[in-house]
Write a protein that binds this DNA or RNA. Structure first.
Lengths: 213, 213
DNA sequence: TTCATATCGATAATAATCTATCGAAAATGA
DNA sequence: TCATTTTCGATAGATTATTATCGATATGAA
């Protein structure tokens, strides 16, 4: 199994979203062409992406919706459950805990949250219990938690990451706009809102400039 | 001015983050090499990215921190203020409103939020007033708002987007995991958490598989 | 002053990604 | 049965992105 590019993984998740929708509508087959039309990705690219999960389609027909959904979910490891801890129970952390159930359908179970704010400690946010930071390490090791979600302010992010790694965390989902320094065997996935905003605002500026010409 | 790739824009925002940090520390000069070391991007790539903003550096010295920060901010249009409305005042919407002040330093001012939930209407969330959906169109046109932020559940996203476009919105920051269908002159920037999670979980699965071999 | 070094900016080479093309297979309808 | 259409999967070509190379320039030390 060859390693698959990040771009392919992101697109697979997009396709899956559409396929699940088709599944809801009791559609039996779906073609790469129609996925291409829905996403704007070129149809040959869609085929390549799907091929990397190992599925095979039927000419003129496409892929069985159920099988394709299962194949992609499997490939993304969304059918196994991975446990996660989240550090930072502020605005963003709460929002993510609010999506707890959806994330569980995608293989990630948020077991607990951690924060330094005494007001929050020993409460529950969207059914997720909030503990003091000091408890992270012990619990993470006892429960074999592999995923750490970072939703703290930027200045705290690196020290939280260090603490996570010292507790056996192997993958970090980082929502802080900071480039975390970690050993290279550690997986870091960044959700960088500023980068996203940068694309939006520059594109808009260019567009407005062109219009006023 | 040639169009700049999305990847370059995202990296520029990353560099800026580091440059602002250096500015805080009263550092006078910063080199492409050091930005490369901080981000993991190749140093020649950093130079190309910076070149696209028009800045010029000094051999052996690098770039003046202040000038570089200004050049990138300008390039991203973060020194001008753009007004935005946000639709969906739930968990995620609230989280984003919580970052209102930070976003303002990056050129985006969230003027108001809109929701269908009567409990929320006419309240304030993180100082942002929440209005009924019906008021969107009128206000957006009167205030010449160009940016719409979508933080509603996936099933409502397309209709919200349609409503936004009918009200003169030109750029959509979409947090719903849905591929919005819009005319091609409309700018859509997606923040796709599922795609991000897909990368994380697949990479982690591969890693764990390799370890157990 | 001269040399070594760090950096810049430009250009060339490599690698990755995306798009086009083509033959084969399955369905549909004449 | 046989042409037509749609899609698949594979391969080749084109585009884009990344990395390497090289000469030039500023700094600081010998």
């Amino acid at each position: 199994m060859k390693p698959v590019s990040i771009l392919t993984l992101r697109r697979l998740s997009q396709y899956l979203q559409i396929i699940l929708e088709a599944q809801k509508n009791k559609q039996e087959y779906i073609s790469a062409t129609s996925l291409a039309n829905h996403t704007g990705v070129h149809r040959t690219q869609v085929r390549k992406d799907l091929a990397s999960t190992g599925v095979v389609g039927v000419p003129k027909v496409g892929h069985k919706v159920n099988e394709l959904a299962l194949a992609i979910s499997d490939f993304l490891n969304w059918n196994d459950s991975s446990e996660a801890f989240i550090v930072g129970a502020g605005n963003l952390g709460s929002a993510i805990m609010g999506y707890r159930e959806i994330f569980e359908t995608k293989g990630m179970k948020i077991l607990a949250a951690f924060d330094t704010n005494p007001i929050l400690i020993d409460t529950k946010i969207h059914d997720v219990p909030v503990f003091a930071m000091e408890k992270f390490s012990n619990l993470a090791q006892r429960l074999h938690v592999h995923i750490g979600i970072v939703t703290v302010p930027p200045e705290a992010a690196q020290s939280v990451a260090d603490m996570m790694l010292a507790s056996g965390i192997m993958a970090i989902w980082n929502f802080a706009p900071v480039q975390l320094v970690v050993p290279e065997n550690i997986i870091v996935e960044n959700v960088d809102l500023y980068a996203s905003l940068a694309v939006l605002s520059q594109r808009l500026a260019v567009k407005l400039m062109k219009q006023s010409e």
